[in-house]
């Protein structure tokens, strides 16, 4: 690494940093400030302190959104991690045809979530599998949205685990086989401990992705019917851009930030160590 820093290189760093500062850090600070105000977007924001957060306590839609976000985190995160790992273990060995299977499972990952949700809306129409669309029933809407999201996410997690499995020394498996270990014993005693760092990456990815999930719900149900599939992200968006309660919406965004904070810090600490 070069000790002397030519001035032109400071520009190399400063220009991107300023762009990100202007479009990310500065708006983020404003977002935290707006969470403490009431604002309709037209007149000046009015400072209300923690008022918006106090309002959440009595807001039934907020309660539904938090519960649904928790369900989403557990089911979307848990099932895509388990499914992705299972698929990766199944398809890890290089053999004839394995590339085609991997590609088949991966294809949905490149679709937009809007296209994904339209595909599944076609399937949910009465006649294929269901007599009436599960998206129209408040009791099933959230789960009907979850399935397409999982369909798309599992292939992605599979790729992460495939990369992790590739990094395991094959000698470990050979040694375990010589010792007479069963397939399950090899998985629990050799593979799983070796996947530690991949697991922590997958954990960060699924928590961040769960909290960011918006497109699939927005395109399938807009959070309805009767807020039954509302997530914090969709509630925040409709509060901001349809109800025009910009202060309350910013406070909801702060809640999402707080929930993501732990994972973000963990991720950064790991990045810092590797750096």
């Amino acid at each position: 690494m070069s000790r002397r820093v030519p001035p032109v290189l400071l520009l190399f760093v400063l220009v991107p940093l300023l762009v990100e500062g202007f479009w990310v850090f500065w708006p983020a600070l404003q977002g935290f400030w707006l969470a403490l105000t009431n604002w309709d977007g037209v007149s000046a924001p009015r400072f209300v302190g923690a008022g918006n957060f106090a309002r959440m306590i009595d807001d039934p839609v907020f309660h539904t959104a938090v519960t649904n976000t928790a369900i989403w985190l557990v089911l979307f995160g848990g099932l895509s991690a388990a499914g992705g790992l299972g698929l990766a273990v199944l398809l890890q060995k290089e053999r004839r045809g394995v590339g085609i299977y991997r590609a088949a499972l991966f294809v949905p990952v490149v679709f937009s979530l809007v296209a994904t949700s339209l595909i599944w809306q076609v399937l949910y129409q009465p006649g294929w599998i269901f007599d009436s669309s599960p998206l129209a029933d408040p009791g099933t809407a959230l789960y009907a949205v979850l399935v397409p999201a999982l369909w798309r996410q599992a292939g992605y997690v599979m790729v992460l685990y495939l990369a992790g499995l590739k990094g395991i020394d094959p000698g470990l498996h050979e040694a375990a086989t010589l010792d007479g270990a069963t397939a399950w014993q090899k998985f629990t005693h050799v593979t799983w401990p070796q996947l530690r760092s991949v697991n922590s990456v997958v954990l960060s990815v699924i928590v961040i992705d769960s909290l960011r999930s918006f497109d699939v719900v927005w395109s399938m149900t807009r959070g309805g019917p009767y807020h039954s599939s509302e997530l914090l992200s969709t509630y925040m968006y409709s509060t901001a851009f349809q109800s025009l309660k910009l202060g309350y919406a910013s406070a909801l965004a702060v809640v999402i930030f707080v929930l993501a904070f732990g994972v973000i810090v963990t991720y950064l600490v790991r990045a810092f160590r590797e750096n």
């Binding site: 708006p27 404003q30 707006l34 960011r212 925040m236 810092f272």
Partner: peptide
Amino acid sequence: RFEIPGRRTVILLMLAGNLLPPQILLVP
């Protein structure tokens, strides 16, 4: 490739910006 002052902090700050939930940025 260069000893930019505070380079680690800059790298992590820039990465942190990308990890923010976009919701906090939408209204501003």
